[in-house]
Design a protein around this nucleic acid. Sequence first.
DNA 1: ACTATAAACTAATACCATTAGTTTTTCAAG
DNA 2: CTTGAAAAACTAATGGTATTAGTTTATAGT
Lengths: 187, 187
Amino acid sequence: MSPRKGLDMPTIVEAAAQIADASGVEEVTLASLAQKLGVRSPSLYNHVNGLGGLRVQLAIYGLKKLTAAVTDSLQDKTGDDAMHAIAAAYMAFARAHPGLYELTLRSPDDGDAEYAAASALLVDLLVQTLSYYDLDREKSIHIVRGFRSYLHGFASIEQKGGFGMPIAVDESIRLVLQTYLIGLRHS
Amino acid sequence: MSPRKGLDMPTIVEAAAQIADASGVEEVTLASLAQKLGVRSPSLYNHVNGLGGLRVQLAIYGLKKLTAAVTDSLQDKTGDDAMHAIAAAYMAFARAHPGLYELTLRSPDDGDAEYAAASALLVDLLVQTLSYYDLDREKSIHIVRGFRSYLHGFASIEQKGGFGMPIAVDESIRLVLQTYLIGLRHS
DNA sequence: ACTATAAACTAATACCATTAGTTTTTCAAG
DNA sequence: CTTGAAAAACTAATGGTATTAGTTTATAGT
């Protein structure tokens, strides 16, 4: 009706995230998003820099939400407890928000400062948690990379249906992390 | 010129893989592929079941090529040597064929038998290599999942430019795998 | 009350996948 | 050697997509 619908960035990004989680990443188009918002698709250009810009915003939004979920899971845990809590929270997020999670790891090389900042926040959280283990600076970086890779690998492969067998993935995650942490102590 | 260009599946899939690696996954369209092959895009439907079918073929092709590269790297190595060789070959493949690698992990739930078989072959290779460590059957499955996740996580994150810092990723891979294997021995 | 701006709109373009229907070449059977 | 059928190319058309240009309208601030 009225030419002012009161759209703003949060509304748009959240609607897009809902489409991504409910119907898959490739279903989030400017057309489907505009329809969901009761608007014509060119109107979205007043708020977002095309489909590419929308994806960047989704990546930032998802990364912040993921970091918040992981942070919440930590409470005052430290050491192995903290590591397992992070892994559980990370996987829970990826399962609850499959589309949004996928978009999170999608922003490429384009130097978006806000995305870089959000990404750094998550890495910082991991680095701080790992400080419990008294690693030297360089080794700490390697181990954090390994932890991130392991988390993303599990989340990504599970999402594509790559773990065919019915043996519980959660148990795999627990055991693999435990193995990694034992190795960390004996090195 | 002549209405018979002699196209066949291998030619088509290899051309598509070249586009994927050179220009990125989203650039492999029936339009760009047809142009590269000197053909009109509807002609491709005589060989491939649309864009979706092409992607399935690319996933199979990439998986086979990846498995072959990993197999070649093994020679007669066993134990830690074999594990490090696999990791190095896996990463080398992902770096040499970024687009094809990305497509490899993309075939979803649709029950394509050939894709499932190719995927099982790679997993078998990992299982066999891990048999060196004398794990019981269930634990072996968990550890293989962890290894795969770790490999895919590193490959995927590196490809998206996620490891900002200039510290060598190869060293991270080596150290993280070493840590994992130490943990395996002490558990 | 007026005006400038922001946010919506319509219209148009270009690209993409896909389907339908047509032509042409090749290959094999008579 | 001819002929006929099937395979592989083609053209034409449709519907969906992003994006740009130009227009209208509501709103917020003077």
